[in-house]
């Protein structure tokens, strides 16, 4: 297990370095950051000044190493828009995005796991079909469209919930639903197939033959085993959500990292964009690292591969 952990950790670090390098280069090659930073009506001399001030005249590799070294210490540079350290601005917004992500994931779990279990105990009935329909439609509807529908129905027509901002807990309900809904199909399908497999296993038949109550068999024996792969899927889905929250945060004007990312892209705030892309990627790397470890811990067969 220790060897496996170390190997996974090394891989995670390597992925982290590669991702940061690729995104750094990608953003540099997409446009001239000096032009973007100097603004629309800058003269060529202004652009040159900006280039030297920000060290953009040095070779790209040197710039990357310099940026990476400072990023390791938690220094992501100064945002030209806020005129403040990038990490300070992001730090303030991170709590909001995390709250949103946690709410969205809870919503997805509360919807998907019961539905997956129900679909598995009653396969090919209307419950199963309903679960399937919900997941198929969920995958087809774009998140921003679903978000706008929620705004129209619950915010404007029924006037139940606020539709913009992030000041109270009520502000998080609609965005959490809009964001969490997209994780439901995957979680539900995995719960359903896991339960179907486990329910056909011998030890379940034994448990039933012993005369255990159906509820006890279902939850204590079956669900516990079926849920293992779902847990690691949740970690991955949480990583995806942090990336996908950009769209939802923008629609609901939630002051999180995603909305900040969108605004920073619009105003060509390159240090900010770079830091946010790196941050979201790192979350994903860390989450998959822990989900791999969890899987290996629960299923020893994985450790030898």
């Amino acid at each position: 297990m220790i060897a496996y952990t170390l190997k996974r950790f090394g891989l995670a670090v390597l992925v982290a370095i590669t991702v940061s390098f690729v995104t750094f280069m990608l953003l540099r090659f997409s446009g001239d950051p000096a032009v973007a930073l100097a603004g629309a009506d800058a003269t060529p001399e202004d652009i040159e000044v900006v280039r030297v001030t920000y060290g953009l005249d040095r070779p790209l590799l040197i710039q990357y190493i310099d940026w990476g070294r400072r990023a390791l210490k938690g220094d992501f540079g100064i945002s030209p828009y806020f005129n403040q350290p990038v990490e300070k601005i992001i730090g303030n917004r991170l709590t909001i995005t995390m709250t949103l992500g946690a709410c969205a994931l809870s919503f997805a779990v509360l919807l998907a796991i019961p539905m997956g279990v129900l679909a598995a105990i009653r396969p090919n009935t209307w419950i199963d079909r309903l679960a399937l329909t919900v997941s198929v439609i969920g995958q087809a509807m774009p998140s921003f469209f679903f978000g706008l529908i929620l705004i129209i129905v619950f915010g404007v027509m029924l006037r139940w919930l606020p539709i913009s901002g992030s000041s109270t807990w009520k502000h998080f309900i609609l965005p959490a639903v809009a964001l969490g809904y997209y994780a439901t199909p995957a979680i539900m399908r995995l719960t359903r197939s896991g339960m179907l497999e486990v329910l056909g296993a011998d030890y379940i038949r034994t448990a039933r033959a012993k005369g255990l109550r159906a509820g006890k068999v279902l939850f204590k024996h079956a669900l516990r085993n079926a849920i293992i792969p779902v847990v690691s899927l949740l970690a991955v889905q949480f990583g995806f959500m942090l990336g996908g929250s950009l769209v939802i945060e923008t629609i609901f004007a939630i002051n999180g990292v995603g909305f900040l990312g969108y605004e920073s892209i619009s105003r060509a705030d390159l240090p900010m964009v770079q830091a946010i892309v790196l941050l979201v990627s790192m979350f994903y790397v860390v989450l998959t690292f822990f989900s791999d470890l969890l899987n290996a811990f629960l299923d020893p067969r994985l450790r030898v591969q």
């Binding site: 990336g243 990312g261 994903y284």
Partner: peptide, 12 residues
């Protein structure tokens, strides 16, 4: 897989 698609696509 570690790179957030929407964010990177949007920025580029």
């Amino acid at each position: 897989l570690s790179m957030p698609v929407v964010l990177v696509a949007l920025a580029v």
